[in-house]
Write a protein that binds this DNA or RNA. Sequence first.
DNA 1: AGGTGTCAAGCGTCC
DNA 2: GGACGCTTGACACCT
Length: 297
Amino acid sequence: MRIGYACVNQSVGASASRTFRLASYSEERAAETIASNLRVLREILEWNLARGILYFRISSGTIPLASHPVMTFDWKTQFAEELREIGTFIVESGMRTNMHPGQYTLINSNRPEVVEASILELQYHADLMDLMGLDQTHKIQLHTGGVYGDKPAATDRFVAVYETLDVSIRKRLVIENEERHFNFADNLRIHERTGIPLLFDTFHHDLFNDGESLAEALDLVQPTWEGHGPAMLDYSSQDPDKRWGAHTPTIDLEDFSSVLDVLDGRDVDVMLEIKDKEKSALAANEFLRERAAARSD
DNA sequence: AGGTGTCAAGCGTCC
DNA sequence: GGACGCTTGACACCT
């Protein structure tokens, strides 16, 4: 089991997702920012490897404004070598990565221009991972999308658009259950129609489900990953001081332990969606080591 | 140097 | 019809 964290490392003292305003775009500005982001990305990955963290979510902001029409700078050619080197490092280190486009990426929108922009955004994500030379076990995770008052119709639109996507996107795309609109059971129906693997979010499943236990859901998740590597899980827990659904500021090891009990013997990689990032990932790894040691006694 | 308003983009909820 | 949360920082601009 690989433990990971998302996008930001608060220890290395630099960001791998620096950006700039649309108004200040220039090819020079883009080149500088991308060069900086890739340097820091490499630094974070090395920091992770040195500490046994082998799963990481690469920021969607690595190439700022990548899918925006303003972006005329040919980053794919200009940074081909750097991207390839980072990808080689990832593969040779036995690491796994994913990416997670944000709330504006909606392939089931009923506005065609939103779908169009979303497809361009997905293509950017796929291109970035392809240029790194990462195989299809490295994923792009997406929430299924909006409901628009009619979930069956929204589901049909998702499936219809999914089937038109370039294979470079389809081989990487996975869908994640969330806490309000498309839950695990909803996504399972989409899997049955498309074969898309199901990225399982344990916290969202707690908050919104059709009555399946964690174990029951995981039994159904696992086979959707055939040929795509170990199942990816997102893990978090409730922040006791914040609104419903808010992610905890730091890992709750008691809660984590109860999830681990269900995960035992399953081939999964676990992404922590927790505010303090690498700090909780280190704590989780340490907890796993102690747990394994206690059992071998 | 430090504070603050704003940033490419959508949807759903609440009022 | 408008503000806000998502998730969150980082930039641009002002003092």
